[in-house]
Design a binder for these strands. Structure first.
Length: 748
DNA sequence: CCGGGGTCCATTTTT
DNA sequence: TGGACCCCGG
């Protein structure tokens, strides 16, 4: 290996780079320089001549990861790019194979790839045709059942009815089969199909499989802990010949079980690939010992791990701060203040992130940041190619490229309104079905008969006329110009120009952007393939902004300062995860907490609120068990007295140390209503004396009558240390911290 | 065909 | 609480 490659690699990384033959599992803990090892390995394979670019298969989950890898390998090799290799997402690579072998699975090579929106619409149609009550059986639920089947590479003939007998009286498998048939008729694939079809292709077609097995001498897989069964089968089939497969992953960062990922894949690696070399990357280059210690202590509560001991040298750094606050609003205020303080000290906002469990949590922070005038961005959210206007524009272009794209036809035939409503579409469908025609051809035929009302017929005629003209234009017009013409002449742009809603200007802006993006591609078809598979947003990193995102979205990122709010039982670990998956769910939640903590380079601040507004009503919250699981020596409790029960004594300090959060608490309308509901008696929060709320960690016994500021009067049911289960007179049973209640006779 | 109002529901998400 | 979705009336 040239010294330029091995330079700066530690021993484990060098091992991972040099062990080229045979199966290798690279267990790469958070922040251990995984990408570096991985890209160097690729560069090494190419540079040493062991593999030509076309003989390498390198797979990632996201386009972003693929892009990064490409850039870094090219950089190592000192050339602008590497041509002809197979580096991409599972889906993009599977699509590439499938385009070549389409006939073998009953598709034409120009099949369209449906996004989840199209998928759902199609599923709805199938359900309607089967007279299934959409209210009782939401199409979304069926979609997710089918997706889980596809994750396991289960074709309709291989699913058993008991797999989902609860859905529509056991009809899910039938609906699945019908849906698949519809897809074939439309010459279309959904995302799950790309892999599933590929697996079927390999399983049923030895010659094809052998060809690809021969071709790919070296396989490399990133984020192996996130692979599902279909992806696993796909890889295993491809790797069988040369057995040079290197999988990189971290079982502790497996957080996508709910969407079909199987941690089992990584846990089983040695059995699947006997003689595998296991390389552990355990030296962490990202976080301080305190952060690492906190994260390691937390994750050690999970069973069935492959086990790694992350270490780092250097200064201990700051312990993880744990802060309790009165409610979500106070929490947002706290985070805002902390950020402003950091900013004053010269810290860049781009090095600060707030990582939440659920998307809804971002709102409180946004509101606070707007008030403070603090620049922030919410990562995630609707993506460019998912916006309505973009999807419409794409449908025009898709229909233009393939006139038999019925889904595209349906989407835009009445956008803008041309009087081709439901009635006309119904007739079109009938004619199409009867004659085995595409909707477009059916439309052409209908312009020559009297089956439609004259008005609709005229509309159809001009609609077709437009497409005929554009197809002529296509022959000599550069495609960005063509796209512009289409959007103009169809009246689509005008539709938004005339729209006076606030979003309209933004939509027009997006359409312009689409045309610009189009110009970067050689052909229209090439562009359309790109948008089907590469639907990610390019993020704007030019501005100094605080990032707000979910824990899931944060995987793979790092920040100097990380805020981890909402560490409360029920929210995090999330109740639903616990209900649906019990211990498995809890462990995945814990891994999520681990991912969150390990994003921090210098400081991590965990917080929780004692009261959280959930679905419009107030709920008492108790601190997350994950807080208890952070080792004492790596954390510091600085919660307001009484808010954190478990170690209220441990941190001592002034009696009412951080009580300003209570003093500041304003009575919001929602709180007011909640209190009225709870006790019929309005108590002035401001007047409530601090003494009355002094910590009461013990002294309550079952049947004691107590009073709570938000929930009113109640009777103690159970006592668990300082956590009480109280049956409130109004509002049912709740768990609250003892310090939040006072004996009923002491309440005024 | 539009919009008002009622109802229902509420993780995590990439491709 | 608030958003998405559906139904019905104009």
């Amino acid at each position: 290996m040239p010294p330029a490659f091995s330079e700066g690699l530690n021993e484990a990384q060098r091992n991972a780079v040099e062990q080229l033959e045979g199966p290798v599992l690279m267990l790469a803990g958070a922040g251990t320089g995984k990408t570096k090892a991985l890209t160097t390995r690729l560069a090494h394979l190419l540079y040493s001549g062991r593999a030509a670019p076309g003989q390498l298969l390198a797979v990632t989950f996201t386009n972003k990861a693929a892009r990064e890898m490409k850039e870094r390998v090219a950089e190592l090799l000192g050339r602008p790019s590497v041509e002809g290799w197979w580096l991409g997402t599972f889906h993009a690579l599977a699509a590439r194979i499938l385009r070549r072998e389409a006939e073998a699975v009953g598709l034409k090579s120009n099949f369209t790839i449906l996004d989840s929106d199209d998928q759902l619409r199609l599923l709805k149609q199938v359900m309607q045709a089967e007279n299934i009550d959409e209210k009782a059986w939401p199409p979304r639920a069926l979609m997710s059942i089918i997706e889980r089947w596809k994750d396991r590479a289960l074709t309709p003939d291989r699913v058993s009815s008991e797999d989902s007998s609860e859905f529509a009286g056991g009809r899910a498998p039938t609906l699945y089969a019908l849906y698949q048939r519809r897809l074939k008729e439309l010459n279309a694939c959904d995302f799950g199909d790309l892999l599933m079809h590929c697996v079927s292709l390999f399983q049923n077609n030895e010659e094809v499989l052998r060809r690809y097995q021969e071709q790919f001498r070296y396989l490399l897989v990133d984020e192996y802990q996130d692979t599902n069964i279909a992806q696993y089968l796909w890889l295993r089939l491809l790797a069988q010949k040369h057995r040079n497969i290197c999988c990189v992953g971290d079982d502790d960062q497996s957080i996508y079980g709910w969407r079909g990922a199987e941690v089992g894949n990584i846990l089983r690696f040695e059995q699947d690939f006997p003689g595998a070399h296991i390389v552990r990357l355990e030296r962490n280059y990202r976080s301080t010992p305190n952060i690492l210690g906190a994260a390691s202590g937390l994750i050690s509560h999970n069973a069935g791990r492959l086990g790694k001991t992350l270490w780092t040298d250097g200064d201990q750094g700051e312990p993880v701060r744990v802060r309790g606050l009165w409610d979500g609003e106070a929490e947002a205020r706290f985070v805002g203040d902390e950020i402003e303080a950091l900013q004053t000290k010269g810290h860049a906002l781009s090095e600060i992130a707030i990582l939440v469990r659920t998307g809804a949590q971002t709102r409180e922070f946004e509101e606070r940041f707007v008030t403070l005038g603090l620049p922030y961005r919410v990562v995630g959210g609707p993506r460019f190619y998912e916006r309505m206007e973009i999807r419409d524009a794409l449908a025009y272009l898709r229909l233009l490229v393939s006139m038999d794209n019925d889904l595209a036809f349906e989407r835009i035939c009445n956008k803008p309104k041309r009087g081709l409503g439901e009635a006309a579409l119904k007739t079109l469908h009938e004619v199409a079905r009867a004659g085995g025609l595409s909707l477009f051809d059916a439309a052409r035929r209908l312009t020559e008969t009297d089956e439609l009302r004259p008005q609709a017929r005229r509309a159809l005629k001009s609609f077709i006329g437009l497409f005929d003209k554009w197809r002529d234009d296509m022959l000599q017009m550069p495609h960005p110009e063509l796209a512009e013409t289409v959007l103009e002449e169809s009246g689509y742009t005008d539709m938004w120009r005339q729209d006076k809603s606030i979003e309209a200007p933004g939509r027009l802006e997006n359409l312009k952007e689409l045309i610009d993006a189009l110009a970067e591609f050689e052909t229209l078809a090439g562009f359309l393939e790109h948008v089907s598979l590469v639907m990610d947003n390019l993020e704007d990193t030019s501005q100094d902004q605080v990032s707000v995102m979910t824990l899931h979205a944060a995987k793979g990122l790092e920040f100097e300062t990380v805020f981890l709010p909402g560490w409360e039982e029920g929210l995090f670990p999330n109740q639903r995860a616990l209900d649906e998956q019990a211990l498995k769910g809890l462990e995945e939640e814990r891994r999520l907490a681990y991912v969150g903590l390990t994003r921090a380079k210098v400081r991590a601040i965990v917080s929780f609120a004692a009261n959280r507004r959930l679905y419009g009503s107030w709920a008492a919250a108790i601190p997350s068990r994950f807080i208890d699981e952070l080792p004492e020596e790596h954390k510091v409790q600085e919660s307001d007295q009484g808010l954190y029960g478990a170690s209220a004594q441990a941190w001592g300090g002034g009696r009412f140390g951080g009580f300003d959060d209570w003093g500041e608490t304003r009575v919001s309308p929602g709180m007011m209503r909640a209190r009225e509901r709870a006790s019929d008696k309005v108590i002035d929060v401001q007047a409530q004396s601090v003494e009355k709320l002094s910590p009461n960690t013990a002294g309550y016994a079952p049947k004691a009558r107590v009073f709570h500021r938000k929930f009113g009067y109640g009777t103690v049911d159970m006592v668990d240390g300082d956590r009480l289960t109280i049956r409130f007179d109004h509002g049912g049973e709740k768990k609250v911290m003892a310090s939040f209640v006072v004996p009923a006779d002491e309440a005024d």
